[in-house]
Simulated scan of single mutants.
Amino acid sequence: MRKPHFELPLHFMLLPPVIIVLIYSYGPILGLVIAFQRYVPAKGISGSEWVGLDQFKYVFSLPDTMNVIMNTLSISVMKLAAGLVVPIAVALMLNEVRKHVFKRLVQTFIYFPYFLSWVLLGGILIDILSPERGVVNAMLGWVGVEPIYFLGDNGWFRYVLVITNEWKEFGFSTIVYLAALTGINPTLYEAAVIDGANRWRQTWHVTLPGIRPIIVLLMTLALGQVLNAGFDQVLNLYSPQVYESGDIIDTMVYRMGLLDAQFSVAAAVGLFKSAISLLLISVAYYLAYRLVHYRIF
């Protein structure tokens, strides 16, 4: 009987990334215990008082907690909806372009913002949307519209978040849908033409059904991110003036934990969000498996 053959050099190559993951991903999980304590840094985890679920009760007793949760959900849902419709529409339009040079130029143009950080884009957007010197308000002034404080008005702030996020992110999804479009059998279009279908009919009956598995997959996987309303974006664009419409769970954790030094309260909020996210991710993967037979292994 042959002995099992172990590739020890390959296993040793895995050690550095495994150690890094253990230190930076699994190690901090032990610190979640402070969500159940009245944590005092000078006393440490072992010396801090155990309070059970008091921190969670305190969080949900705050008057702004439910508003923050609703802000997170509403912003996330709007982003998910825009992230589904816009890339599909752009991919379908680009698929009809026959000039390859123009097509690739447009792809590069819409994909470029995806690589920029929100720190950089935030500064650009603050200048562009400024009510005094912003380009957008200058253009609105040409048609007689009064200046709008987009980043300081609760009525506009959520829509600014959704539109700017989609402008940055939709290029990546568009590339995914364009790749899916190349997998559609051309004979299906030929058969549709023979049956008298115009371009709109071909899109509805051939193109969209052809990319439906990718649409369903991306949509279901996005459900796991519904509580991530975009911390980087919101942090760089919001201000106390728009806390009512723009404050989300992640920014609440940031202010409580890092600015106000309420470490136990911030840990409780973060743990609550992580638990709900885990549930949503599990449901998303189950739906992806049931609907399009997607598996992660």
Rank of each mutant, 00 (worst) to 15 (best):
V193T: 04
L237D: 01
V119R: 06
Q107E: 15
L80R: 02
V33L: 05
K3Y: 10
N71W: 08
V18Y: 06
I248N: 15
D195Q: 07
L129M: 09
L10C: 00
I248T: 11
P209C: 00
V90M: 07
E96Q: 13
K99M: 06
Y254H: 13
L259Y: 09
Y254Q: 13
V59Y: 14
N165C: 04
Q202M: 08
T220H: 03
L94N: 07
S46R: 12
D195C: 02
D153H: 03
I194M: 15
T220P: 01
L161C: 11
L291F: 07
P147T: 15
I23F: 10
G141D: 05
S48H: 08
F172Q: 07
F102K: 13
V106A: 03
I184D: 13
S61P: 12
M66Y: 08
N165K: 11
V86E: 11
I126L: 12
V85P: 15
G224F: 01
E190C: 01
L14N: 11
V59Q: 09
L53I: 12
T203V: 05
Q241L: 11
V242W: 12
H100T: 08
L161H: 04
M219K: 00
L121Y: 07
L32T: 05
I215M: 05
I211M: 05
P17K: 05
M66T: 04
L258E: 03
W167G: 03
V265L: 14
F56K: 10
W50N: 03
M252W: 10
A81T: 10
F112C: 03
Y111V: 00
V59L: 12
L92D: 11
L125V: 04
Y58D: 05
K99T: 01
V283W: 10
G196M: 08
K168V: 02
Y238R: 04
T108G: 02
N236T: 09
V162M: 12
L121W: 08
P4V: 06
V216H: 01
W200P: 00
I23D: 07
